[in-house]
Design a protein around this nucleic acid. Structure first.
Length: 1153
RNA sequence: GCGGGUGUGGUGAAAUUGGUAGACAUACCAGACUUAGGAUCUGGCGCCGCAAGGCAUGGGGGUUCGAGUCCCUCCACCCGCACCA
């Protein structure tokens, strides 16, 4: 009876499936245990050996827990929305839904062959409308919620409205103004809007909604993105290199776009506190803590000289207030323009332009100090000193207030800045500052600090904060480095937002209208002005009005109202008017022409009986400039009438005065943008109809709550039934890569807390224990191709026609490239030999030069470092007749090489990726054509060695948490082990050889030692040492020729989580009829492993010199006697008396002389 | 620049609490059984040395009877990033 792994594995995989062995019920008397893997993005490249690492670990653990008597939930699904599918669609025209489906099917086939215990009946896909219905639903819950800072939890927005109606916002000020919607309410960056109950009641609906938006947990605001005009898309930071796009090298600029955000900052403190009650690695907790970046300090206002404006800075060190030598504000700071003096204007503008062209990544990595003086000054609040104001890219607009007070003696960056620009450095810390580098101590006694002189810095912090609060020039402030999470993407393949815009107000869809399905598109090209592809679908995003259905979000056919056409005379008149410009009109036209706002404007255009100044016909927006004469009563009346008429035919009119346009054209532009709803090129605002949000949600939307859906994945009434959720509760064990340390893990923790606050679930931390698996890197192989060149172009082409491709090994290429003359001559001669073979007609009769190209060789046709030449020739058509020159300039021709030596490939560790040909696949499904014929046999490690060997080898490779390069070599060892294990049970000739003889002490000792070891190692995720323990036990039992059931059966159960197929087979051979996963984990009994003595290492002066076996219950005195009497010990003591004998029971003995 | 991680034989690694460094494998070497070996089994295998012994856990320093493990410092590599005041 042989170990036929392939038959065994297929048989039991089938049996498990047919008997629903891994189906889990939501009701059980057993304690629950929830084991979760970070679900995969189903990429087109399929599964490589890196993917299953975490899944195998979690599968072993899940099976282990099941054996230990738990009801184990171990589900799997797909994170199926994402950019690659969309990119693929753009390139190949295949709908993301189709390619995603294909990829999922492929993944599933690959996963199934590894023998996981997933409960596939609970499978989910984030791109499935049945799933994202609830993603949208949760979004709406967040949209309809705000964070009550007094109760420290989220609550419903309707509560907030009633609070406003009763008391205004006196107790609940606007939470943060970082991403406010531009508008009249917020005139300066940090001013807080306060209103009374009566004022609230008097606000227009739009104003009310704008205010509520400032509170919602999911809200709309404006944020900067990397905008690439040429590609028409938004780029991620790492797609921008040196200010240009990585693809194509087009210029990239910062651009403000309307974006959705999640107000995760409101949860900063709870996300921090929550870390104390979860079992994450310290490194992980530290990363999250640093990301949240809580700091305590103060906001302080500095008055600008000759102005009413103030600059507000945030500092963690208010105690250094008298060390302020200059101010630095972010280049994007709104006061830049105002502060800048006439002389500095040009330089400042240049610098701001330079910063705008730089990605955040570059600004971050920049070591060079840069900045520019604005020419403006502010006044020190205590000393009255004049402080120069600079701008520099090292100050970020998004953190704190976007401005800092620079204290060069105490802050390294400020110090470098001051040195670089030759600025004054005031020393307030005496000898703690050496003039060379800043010192950020808090222990110095303050000098040059007025009322703080003589005080220790730590203590001065409080004193200063009190003082600034008394004087009303600042306040204590807790700050977080974490910012609100951008929650919209200008893409197609994601969840649509269940939002309809109307009059600039975001209206949520009704729950009953979910899911709002992603419409089919023909083109995946970006929409106008940085919008996603959905903005190309007016029939989808336009919702006709005044149908009451509009607000409820029912989609209708686009029904664009026509306006009446003007007469030819009016066109003629308009044409003449176009020739004349006022200053203001000229300025405005500069702003609007050439689609600058993503919208085509016309100037002096006839509409009905009027000629309007500027109009965007598509968007039905009219912009008018009013000259001085508009002040008269008659004119005003006329203007009103005109506006009313235009409105009646569906146009929206905004008016600006001449002065407004001339004074602040950019402000005007923003206003127009707002009306246009930029980036939505929405024909929306104030036009009486609604428009759908055309952004989609980001990749992390679906993954922020999927762990809840698994508990009740087919529920179409609720996102998750409360009872199911209360039963399963937290994920007990979560496994995945560190790359999600601060993204996914923080977002999903926030969603969980929000759902908890809103009382949908009963726990507020999603994961109890987190284990991070390391990355498996690829080991790439290279060979060098020779490129022969001649001076005559057509002769070069003869070479390529006559000669097959020639390859050499790295050592040859290296010695030739390094100019080793001998090698050059050798290679030349060898090539001439080759030419002689193929060029019998002597067509090539000239001198040639050669070059080398390094190419990746598929690792799967390389044995270790030795290239399989025949496999290589089959690998690619063009290499069919490839020639190799290697070793001592041996030539290997196709079918003619007799030697045993093989070419040696170069090795390099790289990221595992298809394009580097260094991927190793666990299982490649067979390729079958339409007729059902197999074109290519199934392949991969599972086919070659079996799933059990593969699983155990992945675990044996090293600690799960550690990154390591993949190397298939060692897999033989694990395969040998399994065969050896099999031979304990069965013999090739005799079949099953298990006996019912009673076990002896030696055998019982081996068994129980192993039970203990496997139990402990599995529990602490040390699977590599676990596998080693199995090997040791198997080796020892083989040596003892033990084939006893009482030993082997428990051992088999121990092995079942690691190698489920072989365990199931042997389990059934032993006569069982139910699955081995339902067996009980064997009980460890101390008595079988108890020892009465131990062999101690005995050291003299810390150096081990001998070993002595001493009874475990020996006293210190007995030990000393035995040890000191030993000859070896005596020898090393060299006749000196012992100073001390250190005896640690069960460890060692050390004699000190 | 900031944050996190890693560094031990030819290779993957082990050493769980400061207590025999290198378990278990792999590669390699020698051998057995074989028509054969990609089967199986036995022995060897950190480095230097004939040996006695010495040296060894990225480098240097420290604490300790004793350090891969703790502390300081430097170096190299990998991962992440939003220059975090």
């Amino acid at each position: 009876m042989e170990y036929k792994f392939r038959d065994i594995e297929k048989k039991w995989q089938q049996w498990w499936k047919e008997n629903n062995i891994y189906k889990v019920s939501n009701e059980s008397p057993k304690p629950k245990y929830y084991v979760l893997d970070m679900f995969p993005y189903p990429s087109g490249a399929g599964l490589h050996v890196g993917h299953p690492l975490g899944y195998i670990a979690s599968d072993i653990y899940a099976r282990f827990k099941r054996l230990k008597g738990f009801n184990v939930l171990h589900p799997m699904g797909y994170d199926a929305f994402g950019l690659p599918a969309e990119q693929y669609a753009i390139e190949h025209g295949i709908h993301p839904a189709v390619s995603t489906e294909n990829n999922i099917n492929n993944f599933r086939k690959q996963l199934d062959n590894i023998g996981f215990s997933f409960d596939w009946s609970r499978e989910l896909r984030t791109s499935d409308p049945k799933y994202y219905k609830w993603t949208q639903w949760i979004f709406l819950q967040l949209f309809n919620s705000w964070y009550n800072r007094i109760q420290n939890k989220a609550s419903r927005i309707r509560e907030l409205i009633s609070i406003f109606e009763n008391e205004g916002n006196i107790h609940h000020p606007v939470p943060n103004s970082q991403f406010q919607l531009p508008g009249i309410l917020f005139t300066t960056h940090h001013s807080l809007l306060m209103f009374t109950a009566n004022e609230w009641k008097g606000f227009e609906e739009k104003t009310k909604q704008d205010i509520l938006m400032e509170y919602r947990l999911a809200y709309c605001g404006y944020g900067e993105v990397n905008w690439c005009e040429a590609l028409g898309t938004v780029l991620a930071n790492d797609e921008v290199v040196n200010g240009v796009s990585e693809r194509g090298g087009y210029p990239v600029v910062k651009k403000k776009l309307r974006q959705w955000y999640l107000r995760i900052t409101e949860y900063a403190d709870r996300l921090l506190q929550g870390l104390q009650k979860v079992d994450f690695s310290e490194a992980m907790k530290e990363m999250q803590t640093n990301w949240i970046g809580k700091s305590e300090g103060a906001n302080i206002e500095f008055r600008i000289q000759n102005s009413e404006s103030r600059i507000e800075v945030y500092t963690t060190r208010p105690d250094t207030i008298f060390g302020v030598d200059f101010m630095v504000i972010a280049p994007e700071h709104e006061l830049v323009e105002q502060i800048t003096s006439e002389e500095q204007k040009k330089a400042v503008e240049e610098y701001v332009g330079y910063v705008k062209s730089r990605s955040e990544r570059e600004r971050m990595a920049e070591k060079k100090i840069s900045g520019i003086f604005t020419g403006g000054y502010c006044i020190h609040p205590f000393s009255g000193k004049q402080i120069p104001i600079w701008i520099s890219e090292y100050v970020l607009i998004g953190y704190g207030t976007g401005a800092i007070m620079a204290v060069p003696c105490g802050d390294e960056r400020d110090h470098k800045f001051a040195k670089h620009f030759g600025l004054e450095i005031t020393n307030i810390i005496g000898s703690h500052y050496n003039g060379e580098e800043a010192n950020d101590t808090k222990d110095a006694i303050l000098e040059n600090s007025d009322f703080l002189n003589g005080m220790v810095m730590k203590d001065a912090i409080e004193v200063v904060i009190k003082k600034i609060e008394e004087q009303g020039i600042g306040e204590r402030k807790v700050n977080y480095k974490m910012r609100d999470a951008a929650f919209s993407r200008q893409r197609y393949w994601g969840e649509p937002f269940p939002i309809i815009w109307k009059n600039g107000i975001a209206y949520p869809l009704d729950e009953k209208e979910l899911p709002l399905e992603l419409p089919h598109v023909e083109s995946y090209k970006p929409g106008p002005d940085g919008e996603g592809p959905l903005a190309n679908l007016p029939e989808w995003y336009l919702i006709p009005s005044p149908s009451p259905l509009a607000e409820k979000g029912k989609v209708g056919t686009a029904n664009v109202p026509k306006y009446s056409v003007s007469t030819p005379t009016q066109y003629e008149f308009a044409r003449t008017m176009r020739k004349e410009y006022t200053e203001a009109e000229k300025k405005m036209w500069e702003l609007l022409r050439n689609n600058q706002l993503g919208v085509k404007f016309r100037r002096q255009h006839p509409i009905e009986s009027y000629i309007v100044d500027f109009v965007a016909l598509q968007n039905k927006l009219i912009v008018e400039i009013d000259g001085g004469y508009h002040e008269t009563e008659d004119q005003k009346k006329y203007d009103e009438m005109r506006t009313r008429t235009l409105k009646e035919i569906g146009f929206h009119v905004i008016r600006f005065s001449n002065e407004e346009v001339l004074k602040n054209p950019y402000h005007i532009k923003d206003k127009i943008k707002l009306e246009l709803g930029v980036p939505t090129p929405s024909p929306q605002v104030e036009r009486g109809w609604g428009v759908r949000e055309t952004n989609t949600m980001p990749g992390y939307a679906g993954s922020s709550w999927y762990f809840l859906r698994y508990m009740d994945s087919h529920n179409d009434k609720e996102f998750c039934n409360r009872k199911a959720c209360d039963y399963w509760g937290q994920v007990d064990l979560y496994i995945g890569g560190t790359e999600h340390a601060v993204g996914h893990l923080l977002y999903s923790r926030m969603w969980t807390k929000a759902l908890y606050d809103l009382e949908y679930i009963g726990h507020d931390e999603p994961y109890k224990r987190l284990v991070n698996q390391g990355m498996i890197q690829g080991s790439s192989r290279f060979i060098y191709r020779i490129v022969l060149k001649t001076k005559e172009v057509d002769e070069t082409s003869i070479i390529s026609r006559i000669l097959p491709p020639i390859f050499v090994t790295k050592n040859i290429s290296d010695s030739v490239s390094s100019g080793d003359l001998n090698a050059v001559v050798k290679l030349r001669e060898t090539i001439l030999d080759v030419i002689d073979i193929f060029d019998t007609e002597r067509k090539i009769k000239f001198d040639f030069e050669f070059d080398f190209i390094r190419i990746h060789v598929d690792v799967n046709i390389v044995d270790g470092v030795n290239l399989d030449m025949n496999a290589f020739r089959k690998w690619r058509q063009e290499y069919e007749n490839a020639i190799f020159i290697f070793g001592d300039y041996k030539i290997a021709l196709k079918d003619a090489y007799q030697g045993t030596e093989e070419p040696v490939c170069e090795v390099e560790i790289e990221k595992m990726s298809k394009s580097k040909f260094n991927t190793v696949s666990p299982y490649d499904p067979p390729i079958i054509n339409e007729k059902g014929e197999i074109i290519k046999e199934e392949g991969g490690l599972v086919v070659k060695y079996g799933a059990d060997t593969f699983r155990m080898y992945e675990m044996f490779l090293g600690p799960v948490e550690m990154s390591k390069p993949w190397d298939t070599k060692g897999i033989e060892g694990v395969y040998r082990f399994l065969k050896k294990f099999w031979r304990l049970f069965a013999d090739e000739e005799k079949g099953l050889i298990v006996t019912d003889e009673p076990a002896n002490n030696d055998e019982l000792k081996i068994l129980h030692k192993t039970i203990k070891k496997i139990g402990e190692d599995t529990e602490r995720f040390s699977f590599n040492t676990g596998v080693s323990a199995f090997m040791i036990a198997t080796n020892e039992l083989t040596d003892l020729k033990c084939h006893k059931r009482s030993i082997l059966e428990p051992l088999l159960i121990l092995l079942a989580p690691y190698a489920p197929h072989i365990a199931e087979e042997l389990w059934h051979l032993l006569g069982h009829t139910s699955s081995v996963v339902d067996a009980n984990f064997p009980k460890f009994e101390e008595k079988y492993v108890k020892e009465s003595s131990k062999t101690y290492p005995v050291a003299v002066n810390g150096k081990t010199r001998t070993e002595l076996t001493i009874a475990l219950d020996a006293t210190q005195q007995q030990v000393e006697e035995i040890v000191l009497a030993n000859d070896v010990v005596k020898k090393w003591m060299d006749g000196k008396p012992p100073k001390k004998v250190i005896y640690v029971k069960n460890k060692m003995v050390n004699v000190v002389v």
